[in-house]
Simulated scan of single mutants.
Amino acid sequence: MKKYISFVLILVITTIFIAGCGSPKDKSVNSNKGEKFKVVTTTTMLADVAKHIGGDYVEVKGLMGPGVDPHLYKASAGDVTLMQKADMVVYNGLHLEGKMGEVFENLTGSGKLIVSVADGVNKEALMKSEDSANAYDPHIWFDVNIWKDAAVELTKGLKNLDKDHADEFDKNLKAYLAELDKLNEYIMQKTAELPEKSRVLITAHDAFNYFGKAYGFEVKGLQGISTASEAGTADVRELANFIVDREIKAVFIESSVPKKNIEALQEAVKAKGFDVKIGGELYSDSIGDAGTEAETYIGTFKSNIDTIVNALK
């Protein structure tokens, strides 16, 4: 009888021990701790997409704020710590974050979940960089259809991170893609207000080539695809001649690029006896400030196309 009681006690203790050592819960909002997954993104565009699709299940932190140039951005010690503590890190890729490549390599080597949204884009849809024959233009968010692929790739990362809420992520993605389709229609309707000969977009740097290809604009930038390359006197003179010859009504400054070069271009045009106005400020490498109509990717794109069409009419 004593042996039987001892056996039962051992069995009960063992059962309790095994139950206590079960697999830990994830850190989603439904866990006992009530914590959300921490997602860190590089650009403001990616932070916006992550918030739309991640919803209530993620806490999103963007490293770069509105108006920050990702081409020149260097990660601080605090940024590196933030990424190390994150559950998932999302970046654009295609060398947009040109000075952060080593950081991403180190994070990947540590086994952390790292997502480059450009990996989800069909190579045939990518445009070659004019700065380097072996690279692609990284400004993929300026073609809404390509950006839809980027959103799908980000969603794959979230589903890998938090499998318990994969259905919710898919639902959010479906709704977001529908909003992007509406945005695409809006851009095409606004573009149709301009005669084809007026669809010439001149900006501070070559950020809008995908936009031009997708929506039928001839695009010229004073600087190259990366703002790390400076515009020279010959570049200003050549573009000034183009503006005078084509009688271009307006050129545009950018929110993340100093306007001094465009102002110099405007003066060079004036010296040739022709006036070209600055048609407004476009958002190129970031979305707008919080609290404005341009605080989201969709709002930013609407603001851009409105500014472009109104200035070139």
Rank of each mutant, 00 (worst) to 15 (best):
Ala166Tyr: 04
Ala166Asn: 03
Ala166Met: 06
Ala166Pro: 03
Ala166Ile: 09
Asp167Met: 12
Asp167Lys: 15
Asp167Cys: 03
Glu168Ser: 15
Glu168Lys: 15
Phe169Tyr: 11
Phe169Leu: 06
Asp170Cys: 06
Lys171Asn: 12
Lys171Gly: 12
Lys171Trp: 03
Asn172Met: 04
Asn172Arg: 05
Leu173His: 01
Leu173Thr: 01
Leu173Ala: 04
Leu173Arg: 01
Leu173Asp: 02
Lys174Glu: 14
Ala175Val: 07
Ala175Gly: 11
Ala175Glu: 10
Tyr176Trp: 04
Tyr176His: 06
Tyr176Gly: 02
Tyr176Asp: 00
Leu177Ala: 12
Leu177Asn: 09
Leu177Met: 08
Leu177Thr: 03
Ala178Ser: 15
Ala178Arg: 11
Ala178Asn: 11
Ala178His: 12
Glu179Gly: 11
Glu179Leu: 05
Asp181His: 08
Asp181Pro: 04
Asp181Cys: 08
Lys182Cys: 06
Asn184Tyr: 08
Glu185Cys: 05
Tyr186Pro: 03
Tyr186Met: 04
Ile187Asn: 01
Ile187Met: 11
Ile187Thr: 10
Met188Lys: 15
Met188Arg: 15
Gln189Lys: 14
Lys190Gly: 09
Thr191Val: 15
Thr191Asp: 13
Ala192Pro: 00
Ala192Tyr: 14
Glu193Tyr: 07
Leu194Tyr: 01
Pro195Gly: 09
Pro195Met: 11
Glu196Cys: 07
Ser198Val: 07
Ser198His: 05
Arg199Ala: 09
Arg199Leu: 12
Arg199Phe: 08
